[in-house]
Design a protein around this nucleic acid. Sequence first.
DNA 1: CTGAAAGCGCTTACAG
DNA 2: CTGAAAGCGCTTACAG
Lengths: 327, 327
Amino acid sequence: MSDRVTLVDVARAAEVDVSLVSRVLRGQQVKVRDETRTRILDQAQRLGYRPHAIARSLKTAKAGAFGLVIPTFDNPVFAQIIMGAEAAAAQLNCVMMTTSGEGWSRNNWLEALDGGRVDGLLIAGGPTLELANLRVPYLLVNRAVPGIDRSVVLDDEKASRMAVDHLVELGHRRIVFVGGPAGADTANRRLAGFESARIRAGLESLGDPVSGNYTVAGGRLAMQRILTSGMTFTGVVAANLPSAVGALQAAQEAGLHVPERVSIVAIHDAEIAEIVQPRLTTIQMPLTQLGARGIELLSTIPPSAEVNEVVGQPMRLVLRDSTGTAP
Amino acid sequence: MSDRVTLVDVARAAEVDVSLVSRVLRGQQVKVRDETRTRILDQAQRLGYRPHAIARSLKTAKAGAFGLVIPTFDNPVFAQIIMGAEAAAAQLNCVMMTTSGEGWSRNNWLEALDGGRVDGLLIAGGPTLELANLRVPYLLVNRAVPGIDRSVVLDDEKASRMAVDHLVELGHRRIVFVGGPAGADTANRRLAGFESARIRAGLESLGDPVSGNYTVAGGRLAMQRILTSGMTFTGVVAANLPSAVGALQAAQEAGLHVPERVSIVAIHDAEIAEIVQPRLTTIQMPLTQLGARGIELLSTIPPSAEVNEVVGQPMRLVLRDSTGTAP
DNA sequence: CTGAAAGCGCTTACAG
DNA sequence: CTGAAAGCGCTTACAG
């Protein structure tokens, strides 16, 4: 903007030095005559002065902002993480800038976010490989990568265990798992949790886990494959909401009533669980807390400190209509 | 970071002046001996130099970034706008920073985004009132405010008209409108479009429009009120997807089969339309294009120029299972 | 082909 | 109580 009002404009108008204006305007407890302070404040107001965050950043080496990289905005799971992170950042008087890096190549992406624009980066998606080159402090969120000891995750294993336990309590003994994509570490943990709970409950293994790919289409396919295999089961744990929806659809299309004939529990909770017929019983995860905790950690721990944290509370079973007593 | 590598570090290592390093590194077509260029590039690489975006911004008065303010991340409509904006920004080599301003008060919000951090602001939500104080160029997106001639919107009227026309073609003559919240200008335009199409088709007015509040709960309530009123109808146009879902649920709960007894069309399209039973027929709107166009305009038109644009193409009817021949 | 200098708008010791 | 000066890391005329 050509007509930007700077500190020197205010200083000139108030007939003081810019340094004094700077101190007064930032509300520092600086000893200054009331008269002078008023003059400065008045002029700043009159001229419509607004501090230049960029210039301040350069001087103080603090961006006053955090970044959050997610794989996509089209997912309520990330929406919840973002909300938590934004609230926590606002608490620190920092802005939260979220991006999916849509349209960016790896290198540009790095340059763009690693140039002093942010004081820290929360990474819930995007290219993991380049992390080593990052100069800005970062933290993996909802994602653990071996060898990178900078992450906060949820208790995915526990979520699966809660899901299994719920079905077991309802009398189910033959439970299948519709998992996530092979590459995702959350998928691995959810599978591990499923297996441990299954074994602990003394349930028979129903063969290799099948992937629902975290999508509706994938969940549907997974369920179709399970049905085709002729395997008998009465309970389903789906690794996330979309795949649960797909599994539900496939089951219904095959004529299996939910929950009379088969019960389904999904990991994660969102409005979509209330929209399908029947409404899905879910395991609600502390996603907002995860986002908030990410910012907290990023802003308090040293950039090179190891952190492998699990945000475990609160988690709860949201009982709806997709689960019932085993037939 | 204490160990930040700066231009002077590279200059020292390559035994040249920083200005030369600056020119070479930015790939400017500067006449420089190949040998020197190689030396500079090598040293920059060796030291792991990364440009400091903030410092560059201060000097060039270009942030290399755009901001996008949305009311919430928990809405696929905004997800699509964001994706379009991000892609368009990347094209310009700019980062796109999206925020919902969660946890910010009005004033801080203003200061935070108006301090040189962004070259322009796309506003799809947040406090409209303060716009006049904004120094950074801005553009309203999916939103028109009287007196603020800086906006890009969709052709909401046409969307409603397409919805009505579709129902009319199927033989429906008694069509109700489940509108959006009273305050929303998109709601007004969709209502206007509904009315104009209704009148053009020679259909009787079925009383005052009812608001579904753009939410599932609101849509359900609206439908319940319509049903209670005893009004007869066979077609429903819902102003958005969630309210359509709510209306659908309420209709089904009242024993009205969809689409045998009542047909429902929703404005906007997203995966949720395929998840409900029956799948919803929708009017797909060019949300991605809207976001992209917002960035295009923001980056090309003068900050004070008037712009009132309608992104009209492409729009299409997505025929699914919630509409059928009038009974 | 390369360098020296000024300056973007701030903040922060250091003086007085 | 207030001011003068240096400097954050760059870029960009201007010299040579």
